[in-house]
Design a protein around this nucleic acid. Structure first.
Lengths: 341, 341
DNA sequence: ACGTTCTTCTAGACCGTTCTAGTGGCATAA
DNA sequence: TTATGCCACTAGAACGGTCTAGAAGAACGT
């Protein structure tokens, strides 16, 4: 610490350059690990950075170059499946120099758009959109400007990548299983979000899978789709509705674990574990011994990791879209193995 | 759309100024809602902004002014209690012009420091730190530069605000309840994080409350503290350890719901709901009818909202610290009302 | 008429980076 | 010798805002 002018303010790249006896341009080259710097100069600059405790200011970098920030747009932090996805994203991004920041966007199209704009305003280098409630146009629009990966949204898309489970198949697994256990009156609870017509959203793909599987088993007449938000409260409401029926279903494909828990609260409160319930996502709660909720596992961590990897590839220059589809697996537990009537 | 030069690039404040026929300085004043602009000029500029679809670039603002971004540092997105806190924060911040972004920081001191630095680099205007694994020095250090509120960390502190539940009292409620139900061998599972000596962290305050309550009941000889990470896996490990004992406890104060679930997985797998379990945080899962975990409710949503409000006050100029302590309530469910031996 | 004060507005520096368009030096080729 | 190419390096503009210092004009008192 000989010539370090230790003023209170944060050191800038100019301080580093002066300390190392080079131009700011050279210091910038070193900072960006760009070619065109001799080993000796590089070393001197790196030493200076360390000595001064220099840290680049993201705002300033964002003005011309990159911010090294990735935005992860998520509707509902409460949903544990999203938590698993996030862990995967975080794991893949660790030590790449990029920093993931999560934007809680709510589950209306308006709040999601606002968060998306906020991320754009903040010059994020890349985006991971988790089950976004956004129109295809808006997605294309943002993807034209920022490398984007959508998770839980089905492809194909020209301008961004997607990572999604094979939801039709997942629904098929559930129906097959329930039919095998002797059920016929099987209801599917779909997510009633702001996109009732967007056939790329998981709830609709799951619905198609459900309908097809029911038909394949000759159960056309029992096809029954109930709309309810995929949340604890939504599940509860759907449960109340089903319970009020004269002929309630003997089994329910809840669409998501979180909805299954709500259904459970309402339908199983008497102590009787009926109707049979199957969730989707295989969250940790489903696996608790006292819960024992059958559920479709779609490896949230892996999906998150894969999504982040795709994004990093895009940041590296890839432009042709890629669409990853993962294969779901049914995990059978006590919630669907009781008597069928 | 008469004279709008609709080039492809994003409009800047200069475009707005030109369109409105004023200087960029005036446009900036309008943007910041600063005084010193006539109503007429303000109107013209606002119209121009709307017409051009202008959105300020956060990076550029960050260079001299503010970024209007708040950082929420959180260790474990998976923990549903944190999710509840986040909802509270998001609710309080909505429509203030600030945007909350969540940084998943992991649960080691190193990863948390890195995330904190990342937030500093990004010129965040304010920080909410949720149960941070950071040294008091580091906290003071950052709080000197950025308005900061710590949640789940006990005060007093000179330089930042805190919001915390009265954890000693919460532990007392649990012990009182269990003793009343006839238990004497009551174990407390503490969080074995990277801060074994930091007596302001909740796990230590809960431990003190536990020890004091046990003493008050004359149960000194049964005081038993088991360290385990407050996570599903940590709880599981603690459960395995307790089960291996010759004289296992008849009741466990798990410290946190998420740990209680892990304990449950390991200890209740036989179907027998023993030992009695009590969690902390009253997460939605605890309330499921099949789970029925007794738990201390500390109103996560309210805590998050309160924290964000304090932060907004600080951003508004307050500098003297405030420390909010909320009163916990015990919610008794089936997990702690079985027979006591 | 003049000075003072207040309000509104503006030119231009500034923030900390990146990037463009060079400069200068050295090695090699003709 | 000069021309050519390459490499390491740099001055200074540029990015899109904010902010300082000061100008211009209006209102008022003397």
């Amino acid at each position: 610490m000989t010539d370090t002018k230790s003023t209170g303010r944060r050191p800038t790249i100019r301080d580093v350059a002066a300390h190392a006896g080079v131009s700011t341009a050279s210091a910038s080259l070193v900072l960006r690990k760009a070619p065109g710097v001799s080993d000796e100069t590089r070393q001197r600059v790196e030493d200076a950075m360390k000595e001064l405790g220099y840290r680049p200011m993201a705002s300033a970098r964002g003005m011309r170059g990159k911010t090294f920030t990735l935005g992860v747009l998520v509707s509902d932090i409460q949903n544990p499946f999203f938590g698993m996805l996030l862990e995967g994203v975080a794991a893949a991004v660790a030590d790449t120099g990029y920093e993931p920041l999560v934007g809680p966007a709510g589950s209306t199209r308006q709040t999601q758009s606002r968060m998306l704009e906020a991320m754009r305003d903040r010059q994020m280098d890349g985006l991971v959109l988790i089950a976004p409630h956004l129109r295809e146009d808006d997605l294309d629009d943002v993807a034209r400007q920022i490398p984007t990966v959508a998770v839980g949204r089905h492809g194909p898309a020209e301008l961004f990548d997607t990572v999604a489970g094979d939801d039709a198949r997942g629904s098929g697994l559930i129906v097959d299983h329930l039919v095998e256990r002797g059920h016929r009156r099987i209801t599917y609870v779909t997510h009633s979000g702001p996109d009732p017509d967007d056939d790329r959203r998981p709830e609709h793909v799951r619905e198609r899978g459900y309908v097809e599987a029911m038909r394949a088993h000759g159960l056309d007449e029992f096809i029954d789709v109930v709309p309810a938000e995929w949340s604890l409260e939504g599940g509860r409401r759907a449960g109340a509705l089903l319970r009020g029926r004269s002929e309630p279903p003997t089994a329910v494909h809840a669409g998501a674990d979180i909805a299954a828990f709500g259904l459970m609260t309402e339908l199983w409160s008497g102590g009787d574990r009926r109707p049979a319930l199957v969730g989707y996502d295989n969250t940790p709660t489903a696996a608790l011994p006292t819960v024992g909720l059958s559920s479709v596992d779609q490896a949230g961590f892996e999906m998150g990791r894969r999504a982040a990897e795709l994004l990093l590839e895009r940041l590296d220059g890839r432009t042709e879209p890629r669409h990853v589809v993962t294969t779901p697996e049914l995990v059978v537990r006590a919630s669907s193995t009781g008597p069928a009537d």
